[in-house]
C-alpha cells in the first residue's frame, strides 16, 4: 500500500444500524486505530466528503436522507457499506420496516463484512475504497462525464 496523494474526508451515516458498527467506525478515529494517520478526517458536512460510510440497513425514512447526502457530495465519491446489515439487511432483512442493503438505493463500491465489523476490517474497507476513489478521480480528469445524481424510485 502506498501513501495517498489526497487527504480523503469521510462522512458517516447510520441508516438503521444497531449502533455496533457506528461505534466501531468512531473507534477507528480514536487513538488506538487512528485513521487520521492517512489524512482521513470525519466530517459532518457532505459537501466536504469523499467517502460515504453507511452502517445499517436502509428503511423508508433513511432512504431519503441517504440519497440527499449522496447527491450533495462532490464527484468523485465512493460508498462503503459497513457491516452485514448495510450489505444485505443481515438478520433484520425480514422485518417490516427494512428495505434491504444500501445497494437497494445507492451504487455501493465496497462491502465490509462482519457483525459488528471490526475497526481493522473497516480500515481495510476504507483503504480499498481509496483505491477506487483514485481510479474514479483519474477517469474524471481524463474527461469522463460526471455520473448523474441518483434518483430515488418510489
Amino acid at each position: 500500500m502506498s501513501f495517498f496523494k489526497k487527504s480523503p474526508w469521510l462522512l458517516h451515516y447510520d441508516a438503521s444500524s444497531c449502533n455496533g458498527c457506528d461505534i466501531e467506525v468512531l473507534a477507528c478515529l480514536t487513538p488506538v486505530y487512528d485513521v487520521e494517520r492517512f489524512g482521513i478526517v470525519n466530517t459532518g458536512n457532505p459537501k466536504h466528503a469523499d467517502i460515504l460510510v453507511i452502517t445499517g440497513s436502509v428503511n423508508e425514512p433513511t432512504r431519503e436522507v441517504i440519497l440527499n447526502l449522496y447527491n450533495q457530495m462532490p464527484h468523485p465519491k465512493v460508498v462503503v457499506a459497513v457491516g452485514v446489515c448495510a450489505a444485505t439487511g443481515g438478520i433484520f432483512r425480514d422485518t417490516y420496516n427494512v428495505l434491504g442493503g444500501v445497494d437497494t438505493v445507492l451504487p455501493v463500491d465496497v462491502y465490509v463484512p462482519g457483525c459488528a465489523a471490526r475497526p481493522e476490517a473497516i480500515i481495510d474497507g476504507v483503504v480499498k475504497a481509496l483505491g477506487i476513489l483514485e481510479t474514479k478521480a483519474a477517469a474524471l480528469k481524463a474527461g469522463a462525464a460526471e455520473p448523474a445524481a441518483v434518483e430515488g424510485s418510489k
Binding site: 450489505a87 444485505t88 445497494d103 463500491d109 465496497v110 462491502y111 465490509v112 463484512p113 462482519g114 465489523a117 471490526r118 481493522e120 476490517a121 481495510d124 474497507g125 480499498k128 477506487i132
Partner: peptide, 9 residues
C-alpha cells in the same frame, strides 16, 4: 482473522 472487504457481493 476478520473477513476481507469485497467490491462485489
Amino acid at each position: 482473522k476478520h473477513g476481507e472487504p469485497w467490491t462485489e457481493k
